[in-house]
Each structure stands twice: as structure tokens, then as C-alpha cells.
Amino acid sequence: MSFVVPKESFTGKVLAVDFGKDDKALAIGGENCLPFLSFEGEVPNKPVIAYEIQDCVPDDWPETVKNIYKDVSGDPVTWAKYCQNDLKAKAIALRLASTHPDRGDRSAEDAAKTVKGVLAAIQVPLIILGSNHIEKDASVLVAAAQAASGNNCIIGKAQEGNYKTIVAAALAHNHKLIAMSELDINLAKQLNILITQMGFDKAKLITDPMCAALGYGLEYTYSVMERIRLAGLAQNDPTMQPPIVGDVGMYVWKIKETVASETDVPDWGTLEERGIAWEAVTATSMILAGTNLLIMRHPKAVENVEKTISELV
């Protein structure tokens, strides 16, 4: 019996989405095969990692990752520049955390100012994220989209409870859009349909099926992503073809494994490596399941995942 390479070819294709401007613009997606299986398909773009920054001091981040940014995190513009110039970030994700009613309740106008400031300071593409407060995001992201008009940003996240205003703003200002649902392939599909019914081009969408940290529900995210990919490729379901984003950092840097010191849990080993590896492995699993865009926090974890990606393509 001789071996024949068992290839699978699909009728569907992940949509390619570009973001950013000029020579710093990036593209994600575009593959017509499962992640990294380039022996049977085209993989025009590799996964991109964006550094997460926030519009306020990240006092809810654990020491391991907070310390890295302690000299720059007081000001989002300085922080963004640090990521671009010192850490060589290819993209930056600005989370407007302080607009959350529990974290300062800053206004949409304030958020717009921050966005403008950051955009003026960097050349790499910007992802603009709300605070994940359904009602507040509905106004904050509208102001942010307007402030970023013409910059081809990614705006997010539009959810079932607030997508209408956010979609309209992304449409008006020509941005890409993250549509987020909660770990359910049918909800993800449904939301993409609702958004495209508003006249939003599906080729400008990015799906966030919701991330989870290693050890804390990662398997759910992993399988939902794999199922979305298979639906888009094998069943050629157009609503399941946008690229996928994994908002990894915020799920990883709060669990006990990235927070508890070695003195508290001697069985778990050194805290710093544990935290970095936790973020790197969570992110690595996500790209194996189909993620095209990662949002991460620790530079060493980012560096590591980039190394793994270059080994995978």
C-alpha cells in the first residue's frame, strides 16, 4: 500500500480583511484551508498580534504584566508609542476601559479625544475596543469611530444588545467591525446576519466568538472556532467566513494561574514564566483553531507566539 497525501479542498474561503493605512496596513484571513495546512490550500496572510493598551492605568492587571508598562501606562499616547517604537508592535488595540461606569465612567467625548491622540502618535493600525458595557459602548464606540474616521481602524465590539449604532458608525466612517457573541456558533452566525442586513459588507467583519483562558473554558472557544471555520470552508456558509479575533490578554491576566505567587501555590512554579506561558499557550491554541487576529498583553508572550507563527507558516 503506498501513501497518498490525503488532501481536502474546500469551496469556501475565509474573507481577507485589511486594516490600517499606507505601508503599515495589514491584512488577515484569505485562506481556503484549515489553519496552517498550506499543503492543501492558500494561506496568503499569517495571524497578526496586536498589543493591548488602555486609556487608564491598568490597576486590574497583575504585576507581571503591569510592571512592564509602569512608566508608560499613565498616558495612552505614551503607551501606544512605546508599543510601536520599542516593542515593534505591528498593531495596537486601544481598550477604552475607563468609559465603563465602574471604572471612571469617562464620556464618549473623552474617549474620542484619546482615540485622536493615539492615532496622531502612531503609524501602525489601530483596533478600538469599548469597555464591554453594552449600553455605554453603544455611544462610546460611535464617538470613537467618528474620531478615527479615515484611518481604516477595527472597531469593536458590536454585540446583540448594541450593534445597531456601532454598525452604523463603522459604516459611516469606513471602519472594519468586530461582532462578538458568547461562545455559540448559532449566535455568531445570527449576529453576522443582523449586521449585514443593515447594509454592512460582510467582507469588513471580524468574528469574536468570545475567548476563554487556558484552564477556564478554553475548550469551548477552541471548538466554537473550529466549527466556525469548518462551516465557512466546508459548507461554504458566507456568514461564517469573516476572520476570527481572539481577545486573549483580558481573559488570561486575571485568573489565579497568572496572579498567584509561588509562595501561595508552590506546586505551580515561578509566577512570571507561568503567566507568560499561560498567555502564549492560550494564544497558540486559538490560532490552531482558526484565529486570525490576536489581542495580547505581555511582550514576551507576543514574541513567543510570533516565533511559533513563523514556524507554522
Binding site: L214, G215, E257, D267, W268, A277, V281
Partner: peptide, 12 residues
């Protein structure tokens, strides 16, 4: 191997 490495891989 090391404790943190084991924990990460066991969890995955």
C-alpha cells in the same frame, strides 16, 4: 520540565 511548564501542558 518545570512546575509551571507541567501545569500549562496538563491544563491544555
Amino acid at each position: 520540565i518545570s512546575k509551571w511548564k507541567d501545569l500549562v501542558l496538563f491544563s491544555l
